[in-house]
Write a protein that binds this DNA or RNA. Structure first.
Lengths: 144, 144
DNA sequence: TCCTTTGATGCGAATGTTTGCAATAAGGAA
DNA sequence: TTCCTTATTGCAAACATTCGCATCAAAGGA
């Protein structure tokens, strides 16, 4: 399902240059399937070549996010994950206790987002954000 | 409206010790009215005394958040803000372009949160999260 | 009051991420 | 193809935040 060339074409169409580094980064996250940290992306690339720098990885991932081609979300504890946005915008439920991540489906939140867009004139699509809380298991095992 | 003593009492009731540092931090953010960064909290305290360390500020703010007495939210660009949760949980709309922050009211999102709690058995209250997007002004002035 | 326990602090180092800047190279023009 | 412009890269430093650990002090008991 990955569409590396579609992503690269979109970048080119937006006037960005296609560099070997950008190609590698796009290929890695498009094929990986799950969300990845910038560090993980760099390690995957380092398995093949050393001509990649962590700053470039961060800059490219940010570029993809800004152009709607990937989503970024906060895993808590100062860590950030990225994934291509093949399946459209989404919301992650991040458990504060065990760190588990559950993705919710669009329809569960879209009514509220429609409302926000109407009331506040704020454009929040494509959206990708995290709600931090407690999953069932951690809530049940808590004793305070 | 600040309730420093209420906050401090709650911490004590939870078994935490009340130190001069914690008292100062609670007093500052309770009186400040708006959200603040950890660095800002420390500067305010440093105006009076030097016996405060940034790690302590972070730890105390985290403690308040974990106990539902304050909320933390991501301003984008790797910065985090804190505020006492006098007015209950809330959601911030953060403009990716100009950085403006708008707080939305509970009712605009609560139906969706109810739904999430039912469907995913995930406890997301008291909630405090940010939705990043574009405010009207920045959307209008964008030319891409 | 003084003592004891153990949670909190300060420090410095580590981590994750961003930024400034000089060097490099992508893509268009000639 | 070669050249030129300027976006992109790599590097190192800066920044925001977290962590480990030795020291300190809050709170309760004697």
């Amino acid at each position: 399902m990955p569409h590396c060339h579609t992503y690269l074409k979109k970048l080119r169409d937006h006037g960005y240059r296609i560099t070997p580094q950008r190609e590698m980064i796009v290929k890695i996250i498009a094929h990986y399937g799950r969300h990845m940290s910038a560090e993980e992306v760099m390690e995957k690339i380092r398995e093949k070549t050393s001509s990649i720098n962590i700053a470039t990885v961060y800059r490219t991932l940010d570029l993809l996010v800004e152009n709607g081609l990937a989503s970024r979300f906060d895993l808590g504890n100062g860590k950030t994950a990225y994934a291509t946005s093949e399946h459209g915008p989404h919301v992650h439920l991040v458990c504060k206790h065990c760190g588990s991540v559950t993705e919710i489906t669009e329809s569960d939140i879209s009514a509220s987002l429609d409302r926000i867009e109407d009331l506040y004139d704020f454009d929040c699509r494509p959206y990708h954000f995290s709600i931090h809380g407690l999953c069932r298991d951690c809530r049940d095992s808590k004793t305070d």
